[in-house]
Every structure is written in C-alpha cells, then in structure tokens.
Computed example of a mutant assay.
Amino acid sequence: MDEGGYEVVRRDAGRLEHDVTTSAGINDIARDLTIWMAARHFPEQPTGQVTDF
C-alpha cells in the first residue's frame, strides 16, 4: 500500500468467504493467515490428530 502497509485478501470460495484487511507488519500477516488456515477444514485430508503415544 502507498501508506507503507500491506493489504491482505482472504478468500474461501467453498465457504463464500471474502475478507480484505490491512496490516503494517509481515509478522502480523503471517500469524493471522496461519490462524485462518488452521481453522479451515479439508475433508479430503486426515485430521492429523495423534492420540496414541
């Protein structure tokens, strides 16, 4: 962005989600996107939960 920040577009067509946010730091963007991606559910992939140690 001209003001020195970043514009982030999050889109999930399967859930009809579209969100545009701005942030000043790439660390904030990375944290927010990691949390957003972790909340996604991908039915074709296993859950990855391990309960037997």
Rank of each mutant, 00 (worst) to 15 (best):
A13N: 07
Q45F: 15
T21I: 13
M1G: 13
V8L: 12
L33M: 14
I29S: 03
D19Q: 06
S23D: 12
N27C: 03
Q49E: 10
W36M: 01
R40H: 09
V20G: 00
I26N: 02
T21R: 15
D2S: 15
D19Y: 02
G48V: 04
T51W: 03
T51R: 06
R40C: 12
S23H: 14
D12Q: 08
G25I: 01
D28L: 04
G5L: 10
I35K: 08
G5V: 09
F53D: 11
T47L: 12
A39P: 00
V20S: 04
Y6Q: 03
V8C: 12
M1S: 14
R10Y: 08
A38L: 06
R10I: 01
D2T: 14
F53Q: 07
V9K: 05
N27E: 12
W36D: 03
M1C: 10
H41T: 15
F53W: 11
T22N: 10
A38Q: 06
R15A: 14
H41N: 15
F42A: 10
G5W: 13
F53R: 07
M1T: 14
G5K: 10
R15V: 00
E44P: 01
V8R: 09
P43I: 12
F53H: 09
H18V: 01
D19M: 05
E3H: 11
R11A: 05
